[in-house]
Nucleic acid binder design. Sequence first.
DNA 1: TTACCCCAACTGGTCTTACCAAAAGTATTG
DNA 2: CAATACTTTTGGTAAGACCAGTTGGGGTAA
Lengths: 228, 228
Amino acid sequence: MQTSSKLALRQTLLDHIAQGNLIPGASLPSERSLALRFQMSRNAVREVMQGLQQEGWIEVRQGGRSRCVNRLQSYMEHGQSIETSLSHQLDVLEARAFLEGETAYFCALRASDQELDALAQEYRAMLQRRKGQSTLLKAKADLTFHMMIAESSHHLLLISYSQLFYERYFNAIHEVLSTTLKRYGRYPDGISQQHEKIHQAIQARRPDQARLEAKEHILYTRRLLEAT
Amino acid sequence: MQTSSKLALRQTLLDHIAQGNLIPGASLPSERSLALRFQMSRNAVREVMQGLQQEGWIEVRQGGRSRCVNRLQSYMEHGQSIETSLSHQLDVLEARAFLEGETAYFCALRASDQELDALAQEYRAMLQRRKGQSTLLKAKADLTFHMMIAESSHHLLLISYSQLFYERYFNAIHEVLSTTLKRYGRYPDGISQQHEKIHQAIQARRPDQARLEAKEHILYTRRLLEAT
DNA sequence: TTACCCCAACTGGTCTTACCAAAAGTATTG
DNA sequence: CAATACTTTTGGTAAGACCAGTTGGGGTAA
């Protein structure tokens, strides 16, 4: 009976990870609370956690919370240099186009109602904030919006990839935005409209439409940069 | 302090395995005794054991003792059919020639004095028993002698390999012995002499000599079979 | 307001004790 | 000698206590 509890706990946690409820970096419930919820001793919980840790799913530190791990990390450990060349930025945007399309697709498909509400709220806040702020903050707000979409996709691979992508290529993305803003003085109408279209498609739960809009949005940005 | 104990215990066990003191199939000390010996809680011991189990070093069953595992097992899981054809038997003997040579070498090099005594005792017993017994028992006695040499080699890879070898190819080996005995009516003098030479070389702790004799011993058997 | 620091609560790490369940060993019995 | 029943041993689980870091919030000072 207790052995099945251990398996149940393990499976539950793995499911949460696989389904994107426990995204990389998110903290797991404490051992004590899990023991309580699953009606098992903390001892048994620890053994499950240790197993998951050993398999590279979670990260455990004394005192701190246990965290879900981004398993793609090791695949990105090559080449620390973040290129700022034009060709590299174009490459980044090409990859991002695919990524954004898929995350938008799965977000529209899988996001919970609460997540959609939160997304709408963040979107409105982004519109407000956009009026008078530094380029850096605008870029951050932009990324936050896109990251929320990614996190609501409940797609482990996409979430992991997005995290690393934004972490690693933030400078490149910021550069693009900076260049674009410098040229137009403000967000081009195209970009604002595209954000709006993406958001509407997601809220309407139209996955294919969301994918199309998101992909086009990035490719539009790419064309702007390319025209330099 | 306790963390270092865990690492120490883990390293100690792994060392014992690597050095052939804990051969595959051998049982480990109980959790309670290890906790006592290493001055740590049984809890901590269990975590170490579980780690080793997860990495495939040991096998744990409730009630029974924990056992060291033969990690080569999975590499030998192909082809269940034990061929008794001549060509296959010759192949087996060729592989065995190398194996016996190496085990004899490391046995002469690394065996403890107690192990050499036990080997001498087994050798004498084998000589006595050889006089009037079934072919099957003679084959078993022969394999026991060779297996003792392998176990005294303190060479994890050779021990693991020998175990699987004898387990899997016992029938083939028995067949060879049976054919040989049928033809000569008894152990050929060559074989007895070779056993004697191997044993003496090991007891004299002359590794190269032991390897030479052991290899020659098997190749001699192989030639006998080949001459069929 | 902002930045910093400190302390209480929280979380993982370990130890102890007790009891259960399965295997292994031992004595008994046919 | 073999089969059986009993006892011991061993791993599995639980509960409680305490230690050792981390976290986060409130207070203080700049």
